[in-house]
Design a protein around this nucleic acid. Structure first.
Lengths: 227, 227
DNA sequence: TAGATTGTTAATCGATTAACAATC
DNA sequence: TAGATTGTTAATCGATTAACAATC
């Protein structure tokens, strides 16, 4: 007896376990929804989203259904509502102060790149060990000495760190970020870094992206479409 | 009768079909192997590579076996040989002249980033539409007007293009790259671009990477380790 | 030889697709 | 109402793991 109210919607707290690939598609749905809204659309459907991104409609519905009931049978999804829901799931419905470690070419570029500002991320402070760079302000972001990571990180409630230092320094920077209480790291250095289990990590290696493209081009015909 | 010579090793020409995830791990193996060589190692094993990267030894062997017989039972893999083999598979055993489209923050940073130079990629020319930028030389790379894409692209035998322009311009830049005979595109703009089937594409969106990290941090405990 | 390690097969696990009742 | 579209189940497909004979 008793499934009167059926099972609870439970938005954004997956009971079971979310398949790896689902979360990355969630980000793509969000990006597409934001474009749809900008273009004046109020609602969309699993088949429209699927067509735009090259996925099947079934996959879109299944992905979203992992997290709750966001659609309306016969109608589709309200863009606004779905955007809010996905942001909540991804955790980007809040403000994320971020630390940038390294102010070389890549670090400076990321400081000037406004792309992720819109998604709730905000670079609150930058760090370097070069005395020539410490004390400067780049794109409105103050550069501190790496030794000040603990203090400044705590003051700004920084939870995420971006590593944009040369490969040989990446692991030791990662260790210091962990010691400073950071919870997640995006590692732009082309090296594998090892972290405690409770620290989350995403790696971005531009050489690897190019290699994937190179493979896709070279093995074209036999293979697939790389992305 | 007759499987005397068994089946041909057939390095780097997969008869069947290479699973999607295998190729991205191949790049990680390559990166790790290069670090091992720099550290003075001459040989390695599937279990060493697996441990370094967090994969099982069986997975490492299976991934490599898609492309040929590179190891030696009882011995392991010679780092040098395996590096050569993987580079051949990925297509990075040759020179890849690359075009950078867009010389804003991100484009300039990528021009200065030496990371992928070592893997066979070389930015041969940059392009922009801003008259203030055209004619300049950034990090040794000449900036041409986008209208010169055909000519310059052909002269430099450019096969790959990196799109580092604002999102609204990305699709039209992509179209022009295709028209100029480019075969593959890395798209850094936070937008989905549509391309003919024979053009390969890899998307890199920094906001999306941060969202993946944010999700992993927020849903920590229940979930996995994001990368 | 004994110990180590590969390449490969079979078994397990997980993710995608197709189909459809429920709903608007 | 008829047409559209969801959420969900069952069937299919693909990828990972475990185990082991072959090899050095």
């Amino acid at each position: 007896m008793s499934d009167r109210k059926s099972r609870p919607p439970a938005a954004s707290s997956p009971d079971a376990a979310v398949p790896k690939a689902v979360v990355s598609r969630l980000s793509l749905y969000l990006r597409e929804l934001q474009h749809l809204v900008r273009d004046g659309h109020q609602r969309t459907s699993s088949s429209q989203l699927g067509t735009l991104l090259g996925f099947s409609d079934a996959q879109v519905r299944k992905d979203l259904a992992y997290f709750g009931h966001f659609g309306h049978p016969g109608i589709g999804y309200r863009c606004d509502d779905l955007i809010k829901a996905i942001r909540k799931i991804l955790g980007t419905d809040r403000d994320w102060p971020v630390a940038m470690i390294g102010t070389g070419n890549l670090g400076r570029a990321l400081l000037g790149y406004k792309g992720f500002t819109h998604q709730g991320f905000r670079i609150a402070a930058a760090f370097d060990v070069d005395p020539q760079r410490v004390g400067a302000t780049i794109e409105g972001v103050r550069v501190f000495h790496l030794d000040q990571l603990d203090t400044v990180g705590h003051d700004h409630k920084i939870k995420l760190g971006l590593i944009a230092v040369p490969a040989p320094a990446a692991q030791s920077v990662a260790d210091r970020l962990v010691a400073a209480g950071i919870e997640g790291i995006v590692n732009f250095a082309p090296v594998t870094i090892t972290l405690p289990d409770h620290i989350r990590q995403v790696g971005v290696d531009l050489a690897i992206e190019l290699e994937q493209l190179s493979f896709a081009v070279v093995s074209r015909g036999a293979g697939d479409g790389a992305d």
